[in-house]
């Protein structure tokens, strides 16, 4: 039995606040987009979506700050040299190894808690999609301050499409994320770790 303290309290708090905001934004966003009055009424959905969007901005800034000053940033540094090999190994494990009880190609340690696929997708999400989502969201809030058209097309429409496409991609990420965390030693190993902070495994890695 090994136990690693991987997730400090601030990180867990951030994670679950972020998760709550995300779910609220998805539910209100979907009900606004498809005008699903039975899900959340329009008059409620709009201010709630706007508020959560602003809060998500602060949550994202907090994440960045935590990575810079909280020491969490090291998990997002990619080793370019070993990356292709690690990616292939990880993908092969998910497509084949996992079904034949092959050993996990990546071993969680205090220095490396994320496997290659994880760190790559988290970097894409947190430093790629999230800034686009946040910026396009703020542009919505202040659409009157923007030029009427951009390249001959309505600015608001361009922003709407960017916001929409990004949010769909993040929804995809959420689905895969929720599933992938069940692929630890037991289906709940990773979930428990994000609740208690301790990553526990029977066998040492």
């Amino acid at each position: 039995m090994t136990a690693l303290y991987l997730y400090p309290i601030w990180l867990r708090l951030w994670h679950w606040v972020n998760a709550l905001l995300f779910l609220t934004l998805i539910v209100t966003g979907v009900s606004m987009h498809y005008s699903l009055h039975w899900l959340v009424s329009f008059d409620t959905a709009v201010p709630v979506h706007n508020t959560c969007g602003v809060l998500l901005t602060f949550s994202w800034l907090a994440f960045v700050a935590g990575n810079i000053w909280g020491g969490n940033g090291k998990h997002y540094l990619i080793n370019i040299r070993t990356l292709p090999q690690a990616l292939i190994a990880q993908t092969r494990y998910y497509l084949h190894g996992i079904f034949v009880a092959a050993p996990h190609p990546f071993h969680v340690s205090a220095e490396h808690k994320l496997n290659a696929l994880q760190s790559l997708s988290y970097i894409g999400v947190m430093f790629g999609l999230m800034p686009i989502l946040i910026l396009s969201g703020w542009s919505f809030l202040f659409s009157t301050a923007l030029p009427e058209t951009l390249f001959g097309v309505g600015t608001v429409w361009i922003i709407a499409m960017v916001h929409l496409a990004t949010s769909w991609m993040l929804a995809l990420f959420l689905i895969v994320h929720v599933y992938i965390i069940t692929t630890g030693e037991t289906p709940t190993t990773n979930l428990k770790a994000m609740i208690t902070g301790w990553h526990k495994e029977r066998s040492s890695g």
Binding site: P8, W10, L13, F58, A62, G70
Partner: peptide, 16 residues
Amino acid sequence: GTTVFVVGLLCVLVLA
């Protein structure tokens, strides 16, 4: 580091 997020989010929440 542990309380910055809570306080930050609360401030915005109160503002909102």
